[in-house]
């Protein structure tokens, strides 16, 4: 165990507990705030494995923008703030719990069989600085990058068109 692994375990336990709190919280606003903790822990994990640019992007976009968007959505829909009155279906919870436990056991067993704990190559040099990522992004992946920017533009226009009020024939 290296020092990085101990740090990762601490971050992973905090992030995992926060993720469980997100899906079990009765209060929807609390769930959004737990989501901040979980996403920040994932961002710290990115930083720990050396993916510096993606780590900071994660923290900027998810914690900074997406969670704020969720809070806006909660306010605009007057979602039952406080105790959530929608989730009184125990059979949903039982089915969801069974399915998620089965998925976890299946996936974890498969992954540990293919990449056992002791025989995996661990990264030696740090890879993922902004310079390396930028070079690869604008040399090998320019076309997907442009397509994604176009997708974001389309999503922006689509969200405006969907969410604005219709006032008479346009």
């Amino acid at each position: 165990m290296t020092a990085q692994e101990y740090a990762f375990l601490v971050v992973a336990v905090i992030g995992g507990l926060a993720a469980v709190a997100v899906v079990t919280a009765r209060n929807v606003v609390h769930a959004a705030l737990y989501l901040v903790v979980a996403l920040a822990c994932i961002g710290v994990t990115f930083l720990l494995v050396g993916a510096e640019f993606v780590g900071w992007t994660q923290i900027l976009i998810y914690v900074g923008a997406i969670v704020i968007l969720f809070l806006f959505g909660l306010m605009l829909t007057k979602a039952p703030i406080g105790r959530d009155t929608l989730d009184h279906l125990p059979q949903n919870r039982i089915v969801g719990g069974v399915v998620s436990v089965l998925v976890f056991l299946g996936l974890a067993g498969l992954m540990l069989r293919v990449w056992p704990m002791d025989s995996t190559p661990a990264s030696q040099q740090v890879l993922g600085s902004t310079a390396v990522v930028g070079e690869s992004l604008f040399r090998d992946y320019v076309l997907p990058f442009e397509v994604v920017s176009f997708l974001l533009l389309a999503a922006l226009i689509g969200a405006i068109v969907l969410a604005r009020k219709d006032e008479g024939p346009a």
Partner: peptide, 14 residues
């Protein structure tokens, strides 16, 4: 995290 997400999608109705 993926399993927790599956639980959330299946169990929550909001």
């Amino acid at each position: 995290l993926f399993s927790v997400g599956i639980y959330g999608v299946l169990a929550r109705r909001n």
